[in-house]
């Protein structure tokens, strides 16, 4: 559309830019409960809405269906089943990974929702929907209150 156009690609200029942004993300009351139960007690907690009766994992302070406050926590243990899964073969820059990474949504008995996490101690072709799995926790001293305090989920022994 411009009347003049650049026709020599050696003359095409650009300017590099970099955006450095650092944040802290506040975990909040429900997040505090959820991550400290993983860290201290190797337990996965949900929150129960007293209005609709649903237990949501991970817990939040309010029910997304009823818009009511949630004040009751439920211990869901550390065992669940694979609801869906994938196997990732490339890294974020598109390079082939030496070992593929398996991810799954793990659901828990009696709870709505689940946790997204990695799978371990299993081969990609062995993973199936409905497979019972359990959380493998990092040693207590290495835990920081992060979702990575769980190393991965493995098939139930």
């Amino acid at each position: 559309m411009a009347t003049e156009k650049i026709t020599d690609i050696r003359h095409m200029l650009h300017w590099p830019g970099h955006m450095e942004t650092d944040y802290i993300y506040t975990q909040g009351i429900a997040g505090e409960k959820f991550f400290s139960e993983i860290k201290e007690n190797e337990k996965i907690y949900g929150g129960r809405c007293n209005h609709c009766g649903q237990v949501f994992v991970p817990p939040r302070l309010y029910c997304e269906r009823c818009f009511r406050k949630i004040a009751e926590w439920r211990n869901l243990g550390s065992k669940g089943v694979v609801y869906t899964f994938t196997v990732v073969y490339i890294d974020i820059d598109g390079a082939k990974l030496d070992e593929p990474i398996m991810y799954a949504l793990i659901t828990f008995d009696g709870a709505e929702g689940g946790l997204i996490h990695r799978l371990g101690e299993i081969k990609p072709h062995e993973v199936q929907i409905g497979m019972p799995v359990e959380a493998v926790f990092r040693p207590q001293a290495e835990r920081t209150g992060s979702i990575n305090d769980i190393r991965y989920f493995k098939p139930q022994s």
């Binding site: 993300y25 869906t84 990732v88 991810y103 997204i116 929907i129 979702i147 990575n148």
Partner: peptide, 21 residues
């Protein structure tokens, strides 16, 4: 940032999870 990002990896794994189901 707390539940998903720390797991790392290419974010299109979410599409893989969805397609399987």
């Amino acid at each position: 940032p707390m539940l998903n990002r720390p797991l790392g990896g290419h974010p299109f794994f979410v599409a893989g999870l969805e397609m399987t189901r």
